[in-house]
Design a protein around this nucleic acid. Structure first.
Length: 363
DNA sequence: AACACGTGGGT
DNA sequence: TACCCAAGTGT
């Protein structure tokens, strides 16, 4: 292990203190802990990527009720998988999960290949850390994880400067994570190190007074544990402007189209989108004779991590639209289909429900 | 290496 | 309020 900082404790002593703390204060009743299976742990770990436990729990319960086994998931339509992911975000996780289930069914006898980190990371959506978490929790074999909790804990215990996302820093953190990983009680240790970061060594207000490592923590010694980990370098937030139309037929149904299989909201169903008004003009001339564009809904913007999306919804009254575009559906807002919808689109449609084509003079 | 990828919670 | 960021991975 080149480049490993001097550990704050021997691996054995670190494990003893952490597991003692976990036995008393750790979380022992998370939904994926009982019953514990490779499939359930896998699904939970995918959902938990960049997503907090409290957010995941209801999604996990619904997902397991509908897809109790890897085989059930593999046989499902992607539309239904994305439907259960609606609102959770990072939809590539759902597409990759679905694809990986099919691969496991076809090439691994219907089981997750938990024999090695390499076998697991060959599946889409499973990286080094997620592979370690699955192996440790479902088989008990020795495997390390390096999630945000471990990164925060390790940078503090060893006063490691620099943004942990930087490869040189990340390598040091992986070396420490591997070093501290025990040979026994792997499931407990893995849960313990995450619980420690999530509930004690928290980002804004770590509870150092009751921390089992406060006598060896370099950041605590410096008097400012919250200084670690250092922040990601910030960049300007671009705004993407786009035009999304709300098209309604005589029955008040809304026209939805499936987005491309990758990229933003990949595979989800959404309103027809146009880069600019010129593209819209072409499209309307293409098949709609009597379209009337009238502003009715307020401008809509949604802020993402890396950009702002400005949507300009405008209802279009038209006749005989079906056939204009090949792949789309007329969607009744009062009768939700089992299709994936992005959260802002779902919200927008919900606001649309009482809307009708009755002549409603604007203000 | 740097960026894309969602959403909701915390301060 | 306006950031920051959470059980990361893929390109």
């Amino acid at each position: 292990m080149p480049d490993m900082p001097t550990p704050c404790l021997t691996a054995f002593e670190f494990q003893r203190r952490l597991l003692d703390w976990f036995d008393q204060y750790g979380r022992h009743d998370l939904p994926w802990q009982s019953p514990r299976s490779a499939y359930r742990v896998w699904v939970s770990e995918i959902m938990l990527q960049q997503t907090q436990v409290a957010t995941v729990i209801p999604y996990f319960e619904r997902f397991m009720a509908r897809f109790p086994t890897l085989e059930a998931l593999a046989h499902a339509d992607q539309d239904e998988v994305l439907h259960l992911w609606t609102g959770l975000g990072y939809y590539a996780r759902a597409r990759n999960l679905h694809k990986a289930a099919q691969t496991a069914l076809d090439e691994h006898g219907g089981e997750l290949p938990t024999q090695s980190v390499e076998a697991l990371t060959a599946l889409p959506g499973i990286g080094r850390s997620t592979a370690g978490a699955i192996i440790a929790q479902s088989t008990g074999a020795r495997a390390a994880i390096l999630d945000g909790n471990v990164k925060r804990s390790m940078t503090r215990l060893h006063a490691i400067s620099g943004w942990p996302g930087k490869p040189v820093i990340e390598n040091k953190l992986w070396a420490l994570a591997e070093y501290f990983t025990p040979d026994e009680r792997l499931a407990d240790y893995t849960q313990a190190i995450m619980d420690f970061g999530a509930t004690l060594c928290t980002r804004a207000r770590p509870d150092c007074v009751i921390c089992p490592f406060n006598d060896v923590c370099a950041a605590y010694e410096e008097g400012a544990p919250q200084r670690y980990p250092e922040s990601k370098p910030k960049k300007a937030l671009p705004t993407r402007e786009t035009l999304m139309l709300v098209l309604r037929d005589g029955a008040g149904r809304v026209w939805l189209e499936q987005r491309p299989p990758s990229g933003l909201w990949g595979g989800l169903w959404s309103l027809p989108q146009f880069d600019d008004r010129a593209a819209l003009g072409d499209w309307l001339q293409d098949g709609v004779d009597s379209a009337v564009i009238e502003p009715a809904l307020p401008g809509f913007t949604h802020t993402f991590s890396h950009f702002r999306l400005a949507i300009t919804p405008q209802p279009v009254r038209c006749e005989g639209l079906s056939g204009v575009r090949e792949k789309g559906i007329w969607f009744d807002p009062a009768d939700p289909p089992t299709l994936g919808l992005a959260a802002p689109v779902k919200s927008l449609l919900a606001q649309l429900a009482p809307f009708s084509l009755d002549p409603t003079p604007g203000p």
